[in-house]
Design a protein around this nucleic acid. Structure first.
Lengths: 221, 221
DNA sequence: ACTTTTTTTTAGACAAGTCTAAAAAACGAA
DNA sequence: TTCGTTTTTTAGACTTGTCTAAAAAAAAGT
C-alpha cells in the first residue's frame, strides 16, 4: 500500500471533507483556507498527489479525489474517530479535549492496530461528536433522518445527534450550556433576518446564531 | 515546554540508551550507527540539540545529555513503554509485534494523554519485555537483582525478567522456543571460547549464543 | 616523534514542504 | 467584448534533515 506523509494525508482529509459539502471539484483557494496555508503551496501539493493518482487535477480547474484518494481519506477519518472514541470512552477525556490529540493519532500507520482498536471499543458506529465511523472497508453507514438545526422548522421536536468537532471553544460552550448528544430539544422560534434560532432544552431557553445552528445536527421525532 | 521534532526526539532517545551502557560521552560514530545514518548528519543534529541545551557538545569530543535532555528522553521512553503495554494488555498484540507501532506512538504530544494511559493500564511498573517504565516524574524504579544471562554462572537457577525489544525476529525466536517473562531456567553449561550458554527450561535444553545471552536478563533465585 | 589510520567536521547538494512576489489565466461587469 | 478583479500558477528562496566528498583533527603504530 502507498505510503503517505502526514502532510499528504492532511490534504486528502481536507479535500474529502470539503467535497462532502460541495458538488464537483474543490478550488485551490478553498483548500488553502482549510489547510491554513497559501494557494501556491496547495498547487505544489496537488501536482504531487495527482502524480500519485490520489486525485485528478488540471491547471486552474481545482481537484477531485480519485477512488484511491477517497479510500485513503476515509482510512484517516476512521482512525481519527476511533481514537476520539478511545480517548472519551476509555480515558475519560471530554469531547472538547480530544480533537487535537486525534489529529496526531490519525497518522499512526498500522491497519492491524486500527482494526484491533475498533474491536476493543466494541465496533462503535459514531464518535463522541456523533460523526459516523467508517468501517474497515471504508463504508460509512448512513446516519438516517438527520438534518442541521439551522434547517429545522418552528415547533419541531428533536434529539441532538451530532456536532462539529474541530473547534474546542465551540464544544466547551456546548458543555457550558449542558448540550450533549441525545439531549431532547424543541424549536421555539426562528428569526428570518439573521437565521438565529431559539430552542428549549431541559426546561430552559437557549438562542443560537445561524453559525452555531449549522454545526449541530438533529433527528426530528 | 520545548517542542521537539520526531527526529530530535529519536536522537535524544538513542543517546540516552547508549549512555546507559557507557561511561562518559557518546561518540558521533556510535550514534550514527545507532541511528542508521551518517556521521555528518549526526554532527549537524548535535549542534542543533546543543543550541537548545538538550546536550553538551564540543567538536571532536562526543556528546552528553543535560538534565533537560535526559528528562525529554525519559518522557519518550515512558510513552514508548506505556503504549507497548497498552498494545499487549488491551489489544492482545504479541510482544514481538509492538515495537514498531510504539516507535510511532511515542511521539504523540500530550502529557495528559500519557498520564491517563498510565492510569488506565493500572500504573504498570514494567513493559511487556520487562523493561521498567519511567514514572510521571521521570524516575525509573530500580529493577533489583537483575543480571544478564551472559553473566550467569553454571548451576545458577533463575527466572527470565527482561529481553531486548527492538528486534522482531529475536522476539519471534523466543516465542518459538517458548521463552516468556517469568519462565524459570537453570544454567547448565557455558563454553568459555565462544561464550555460548546452555540452559534448561520446561524440561528442555536450549543453547544461546553470547549475542542472545546478552539480550536476556534474569533474576537469580 | 612521525606517519598512517580512524574519526569527526565542513562544504556543498538535494528533497519536502513551505513562503513571497510576480506572471498568467479565468471570471465578471458594463 | 473588453477591462479590471480575482484566482491560480510559476519562479525563486528558505528550513529541516539528509547525503557525498573532501578536509581537519585525533588516535594509534612503529
Amino acid at each position: 500500500m502507498l505510503r503517505l506523509t502526514q502532510s499528504e494525508e492532511n490534504y486528502l482529509k481536507a479535500i474529502f471533507t470539503l467535497s462532502q459539502d460541495v458538488e464537483g471539484s474543490i478550488s485551490t483557494n478553498d483548500l488553502a483556507e482549510k489547510m491554513a496555508t497559501k494557494a501556491s503551496s496547495v498547487t505544489d501539493m496537488l501536482k504531487k498527489l495527482c502524480e500519485k493518482d490520489l486525485l485528478e487535477y488540471q491547471k486552474y480547474q481545482g481537484c477531485e479525489l480519485t477512488n484511491l484518494g477517497s479510500a485513503h481519506a476515509l482510512a484517516i477519518i476512521r482512525k481519527h474517530r476511533l481514537w476520539e472514541t478511545f480517548l472519551v470512552d476509555k480515558l475519560s477525556f471530554g469531547w472538547d479535549e480530544v480533537h487535537e490529540i486525534a489529529e496526531q493519532l490519525e497518522h499512526i500507520q498500522s491497519t492491524e492496530l486500527t482494526d484491533r482498536l475498533d474491536e476493543f471499543l466494541g465496533f462503535p458506529k459514531v464518535d463522541p461528536h456523533g460523526e459516523p465511523i467508517p468501517g474497515k472497508d471504508g463504508r460509512i453507514e448512513s446516519v438516517s433522518n438527520r438534518i442541521l438545526l439551522s434547517e429545522a422548522s418552528v415547533g419541531m421536536k428533536a434529539v441532538i445527534m451530532g456536532v462539529e468537532d474541530d473547534q474546542t471553544e465551540f464544544l466547551q460552550y456546548l458543555n457550558k450550556i449542558g448540550l450533549h448528544l441525545g439531549t431532547p430539544i424543541e424549536v421555539l422560534d426562528k428569526l428570518s433576518f439573521d437565521g438565529s434560532i431559539t430552542i428549549s432544552m431541559d426546561d430552559r431557553q437557549v438562542q443560537f446564531s445561524i453559525t452555531i445552528a449549522k454545526q449541530i445536527s438533529i433527528k426530528p421525532l
